[in-house]
Computed example of a mutant assay.
Amino acid sequence: MKKIAVFGLGAMGYGIASSILRAGHTTHGFDVVPEQVTRFQANGGSAGALTDVAGSLDAVAVVVLNAAQTEAVLFGDDAIVPQLPAGAVVLACATVPPNFAREMEQRCNAHDVHYLDAPISGGAGKAASGQLSIMASGTKAALDAAKPVLDATAETVFTLGDTAGAGSAMKAVNQLLAGVHIATMAEALTFGMTQGVTPDKFLEVISKCAGTSWMLENRAPHIIAGDFTPLSSVNIWPKDLGIVLDIAKSAQFSAPITTTALQQFVEAAKMGLGGEDDSAVAKVYARNTGLTLPSEKE
């Protein structure tokens, strides 16, 4: 059994930490929200200050929001990488630009620490059940060192190359589709409402037809229930689709559908919905058309 730390105990990170703990590893959880750390320790997570445990860690999973937060964990004020023993591995799970992943790999290697570019997909439910899809790229040594974490958290591990960057490139492709699918689901659901199609009937029928998608089947129930508790928030998408468009610009690639979807999430954030579930982008369409969505839960 290994000693592993998870940085970031949000919806995804908490599930990942719980899956690692369930696999029998000594698991530490760290987060800027102290209550999340306390909760994880109450559920079996190991206690201990970072400075006390870092030198004995075999692996670190960084499950934060973006590149800036990833860099802060690895090389910021309380930098974890210089404290890790030689041969430890960092699994970086946030959606970040490929060039950033390559830079982090080089900086980790300078400390004799392996770096695995390991963005994740599957949502909070699959994180908690250890059934994520992980788009991994890195050296064979990094993959080998990360295997206990991958085995505990993933149903499918795609190995995409022997250097960092390829995993993040694939995640950008996935996020392009996922963000577009959520916005399109919201557009289709509210369009149906203008024609007398209720949201619950929309889901019943379209989920069995060619127009369905995983995102439609996963997010439409949130709208039907009127429950916008954030499992994946609106605020994630201006970041992730922004990364997609930055990569597209560097490749001189036009991505007009992504641009349009991005604007819907930006508008949702302007409406004060940034902290709500990303299915709340439907409220943009409802506002613009004068529709009334199912009431939110008290």
Rank of each mutant, 00 (worst) to 15 (best):
residue 196 G to F: 14
residue 178 A to Y: 01
residue 251 A to I: 01
residue 120 I to E: 05
residue 31 D to F: 06
residue 244 V to W: 00
residue 152 A to P: 05
residue 226 G to I: 12
residue 75 F to V: 04
residue 35 E to C: 01
residue 139 T to D: 02
residue 45 G to K: 12
residue 70 T to F: 00
residue 259 T to M: 07
residue 167 G to H: 07
residue 212 T to K: 13
residue 199 P to D: 14
residue 189 L to F: 13
residue 193 M to Q: 14
residue 246 D to H: 02
residue 207 S to E: 03
residue 35 E to F: 02
residue 115 Y to K: 10
residue 235 N to R: 13
residue 54 A to S: 05
residue 192 G to A: 12
residue 73 V to H: 10
residue 22 R to P: 03
residue 184 T to F: 06
residue 298 E to F: 02
residue 292 T to G: 00
residue 118 A to N: 11
residue 108 C to S: 06
residue 16 I to K: 07
residue 165 G to I: 00
residue 75 F to Q: 05
residue 78 D to G: 00
residue 92 A to Q: 15
residue 14 Y to E: 13
residue 18 S to L: 08
residue 156 T to H: 14
residue 290 G to M: 02
residue 104 M to A: 15
residue 35 E to Q: 14
residue 285 Y to M: 15
residue 235 N to Q: 13
residue 213 S to K: 04
residue 266 V to D: 04
residue 4 I to V: 15
residue 46 S to I: 03
residue 199 P to F: 14
residue 208 K to H: 14
residue 55 G to P: 11
residue 22 R to Y: 12
residue 42 A to N: 15
residue 61 A to H: 01
residue 44 G to K: 02
residue 147 K to W: 09
residue 240 D to N: 07
residue 108 C to M: 07
residue 64 V to G: 00
residue 232 S to I: 08
residue 216 L to A: 07
residue 197 V to R: 08
residue 162 D to H: 14
residue 259 T to D: 06
residue 263 Q to W: 00
residue 88 A to W: 03
residue 81 V to L: 05
residue 122 G to E: 13
residue 94 A to C: 02
residue 82 P to N: 10
residue 140 K to Y: 03
residue 274 G to E: 07
residue 184 T to H: 01
residue 142 A to C: 13
residue 279 S to M: 10
residue 136 A to Q: 04
residue 198 T to W: 07
residue 296 E to M: 10
residue 120 I to Q: 08
residue 27 T to D: 11
residue 297 K to F: 01
residue 267 E to M: 00
residue 298 E to H: 04
residue 134 I to T: 09
residue 38 T to V: 10
residue 257 I to N: 03
residue 289 T to F: 00
residue 1 M to C: 13
residue 225 A to C: 02
residue 151 D to C: 11
residue 194 T to R: 11
residue 291 L to M: 04
residue 57 L to P: 10
residue 104 M to T: 08
residue 273 L to F: 12
residue 188 A to K: 02
residue 248 A to G: 05
residue 90 V to K: 09
residue 127 A to D: 11
residue 264 Q to I: 08
residue 166 A to K: 06
residue 113 V to L: 10
residue 40 F to H: 11
residue 168 S to W: 07
residue 127 A to K: 10
residue 255 A to F: 08
residue 207 S to G: 02
residue 64 V to N: 00
residue 169 A to R: 12
residue 63 V to E: 02
residue 235 N to F: 03
residue 48 G to F: 06
residue 213 S to P: 07
residue 77 D to Q: 13
residue 137 S to D: 04
residue 259 T to I: 02
residue 71 E to H: 14
residue 271 M to V: 01
residue 40 F to Y: 13
residue 124 A to Q: 08
residue 69 Q to K: 13
residue 139 T to H: 08
residue 245 L to V: 00
